[in-house]
Amino acid sequence: MTILLIISAVTVTLIIILVKIFNTLIDKKNQVTNIFSSTDVLLKKRYNLIPNLVSSVSRYMEHEKEVLQKITELRNQANKPDITDDQKITLDNELSSALGSIMVAVENYPDLKANENFLHLQHILTEIEAQISAARRAYNQAVTNYNNAIEMIPTNFMARSMGYTHKKVFGIKESEKQNINIKALFNR
């Protein structure tokens, strides 16, 4: 009788532990998914600004036509349906880099820097960049928590059986860790 009771107690404890591990993994995976969805919304907001940005600067920027074309192309690729999360992350990194080079090049065009429409666009972009930067950091933190859970003992055993795999983080440049400041880039 005592042995039966001990076996029952151990079984119940094991079940509780397994349920807890299962729920923790689900929670971490959902957290990553939720934050990625919010990040995606912000990235789309930025993609929507790109046509305006390109039309505002293309009249002035004679030597950056290739970069502007690349930005438009990246936007088109990012707007395609059915692209994977990893592809979105790669496209975002490429787009951020291309936008960064445009921002630096603005310095060579004083007329553009004085354009009201462009200044307004710059303000909106600054705010969206701050939000995207926060979203990337939040996503990376959620992914780190998730990746730790699927690699650490004992959660890794269940994660493997649930088919959970390692997720990719957004690349964050050192300058971005200090706070993105497009205004400063424009005024460089």
Partner: peptide, 12 residues
Amino acid sequence: DSIEAHYLLTHT
């Protein structure tokens, strides 16, 4: 909201 917390709590 995790994103808002990161938006408010920048590294600076």
